[in-house]
Amino acid sequence: MAFWSVFGTILAALATLAIFSFLYKDNPFYRSAEHIMIGLSVGYGLGQLWHLGFKQFLFDPLFKEARYELLIPTAIGMLYFGFVHPKTRWLIRIPIAILMGIMAGFGLGPGMQASIFKQVQGTIIPLFRYGLTVGETFSNILLIVGVFSAIVYFFFSWKHKGVVGGVAKVGIYFLMIGFGASFGLTVMGRISLLIGRIVFLFQDLPKVLFGG
């Protein structure tokens, strides 16, 4: 096996063990690995930013395709550097204002379409229809009750008393079931990552080091 492949596997194993050492207690190996990870992640982002960001969206269109209109967003983006001096610091508000304005305006229209209309549309489902089984009808009723009661729970303009309080209580049960399911999925995701690391340490690493 090539030297770099073996060396890479050993490096990966050392990195894995350094992070796992935190299970005993906070120690310099863990801290070093943690800081290296942050540095590498930022460095990785930097490489992506340069090649898939600046080169792809700015330099290549600007210099190879002569799309000089891109100088306008470039000039706007350069205003971010105004923050280096106290007198020009306020200039940073201009690119932020442009992004905020566009995002806010765009969020109102398509945001309403994607997040409200689509969700309401998905909730308007047949309760009783020829061909629906009892189980499907029950699930559909439960879905509508769940959405409605959970929304009522989040509605704080009325006091949660009487009928509103009762509906909100049902909403809490739905929320708890939903959070429980999400928690279960998260736990399973983490456990599967842990299994992956254990398999690497006890199967892949010995194979690379000792063959087999």
């Binding site: 998905g122 699930s139 439960l142 769940g146 739905f174 939903g178 999400s182």
Partner: peptide, 13 residues
């Protein structure tokens, strides 16, 4: 069902 209902309500909010 319950998880979708919960997520939908949260998303609407």
């Amino acid at each position: 069902v319950p998880n979708t209902a919960t997520k939908r309500a949260i998303m609407l909010g």
